[in-house]
């Protein structure tokens, strides 16, 4: 390829974008709308995922001690708890503190407690688990083990609720994945078809270019660049629309997060690649390569 040819290819590319601005604009809008569906879906998924994470982070395991356990045994239990796998932090809660907490929880009904002469609550340890160990298998095994220890009366973490929640989360991800895949494939389909249609629209131009002896490279590059640019512009447009939707949603659901910047970059690049590949695939048939 001569350097002159490269320059003409560049002119051809920019010229084509300008001449075909209307069909390009229509394609970009179609693509942007379908991409909007995809990233809205992604944003909803990410928000739900972070909500799930936050909720599970708040889980605490309570280890209630037998009444009248000696300070020595209690400290011993604390040390052993600390060395349990997955334990992040162990806090001691004396029966007095527990009663105080309870009073606070009851609020204005706390006078009821005045009727109780003796503090009925046990001393306890409150455990915060590391994120990756918050799973029903791990928790159940630990609760079983620790429950056997001398001086431990009971281990409690809201097992039934936790397991139910875990199942719900698992099926959510499953459905989400399937749906995501469907949406993703549809978007790829829409984009490559849109690109294909714009190429079909210039079949005459391609034919004439071939007639006067343009190489396949000369013919292809403008269309590939066009496809990539359509991908970039439409993905940015989709992100812009999502930003508006996000603003609007924030009024009703404060704390809803937007997509992260690095994810946006990956998304835009991916769309450019899909656009370029769509062009290439469409041209392949056209140029009988």
């Amino acid at each position: 390829m001569k350097p002159g040819e490269l320059r003409y290819i560049w002119h051809e590319s920019t010229g084509m974008l300008w001449r075909r601005k209307v069909p390009n604009l229509i394609s970009v809008i179609i693509m942007a709308l379908s991409l909007l569906i995809l990233i809205t879906f992604l944003a909803v998924t990410l928000n739900i995922a972070s909500l799930i994470e936050k909720t599970s982070e708040e889980l605490r395991v309570y280890v209630y001690l037998d009444d009248g356990v000696s300070g020595e045994l209690s400290r011993d239990i604390q040390i052993r708890l600390m060395s349990e796998q997955g334990v992040d932090e162990v806090a001691y809660i004396s029966k007095e503190e527990a009663l105080e907490d309870f009073r606070e929880t009851l609020g204005e009904n706390s006078e009821l407690l005045n009727a109780v002469e003796q503090n009925p609550l046990p001393d306890s340890y409150r455990i915060r688990m590391k994120q990756e160990y918050i799973r029903s298998g791990v928790l159940e095994a630990m609760a079983g083990r620790v429950g056997q220890w001398e001086g431990v009366e009971e281990v409690v973490y809201g097992r039934k609720w936790f397991e139910r929640g875990e199942k719900l989360v698992r099926s959510f991800y499953m459905i989400d994945l399937v749906l995501g895949l469907i949406v993703f494939l549809s978007v790829v389909f829409v984009i490559s078809n849109t690109v294909r249609l714009t190429i079909l629209g210039s079949s005459r131009t391609i034919e004439i270019l071939k007639l006067v002896g343009a190489t396949n490279t000369y013919i292809q590059i403008p269309f590939i660049l066009e496809g990539a640019l359509q991908g970039v512009v439409s993905s940015l447009l989709a992100i812009g629309m999502l930003a508006i939707i996000h603003r609007f949603t924030l009024q009703y659901l404060p704390g809803v997060a937007f997509i992260r910047v690095d994810a946006i970059a990956v998304f835009v690049v991916l769309c450019a690649v899909i656009g370029a590949l769509g062009s290439m695939a469409a041209l392949r048939r056209f140029l009988k390569m």
């Binding site: 003409y8 004439i208 002896g213 000369y218």
Partner: peptide
């Protein structure tokens, strides 16, 4: 010009 451009001829 197209016929000449595709050959890479100078402007």
């Amino acid at each position: 010009a197209l016929a000449m451009k595709v050959t890479g001829a100078g402007m």
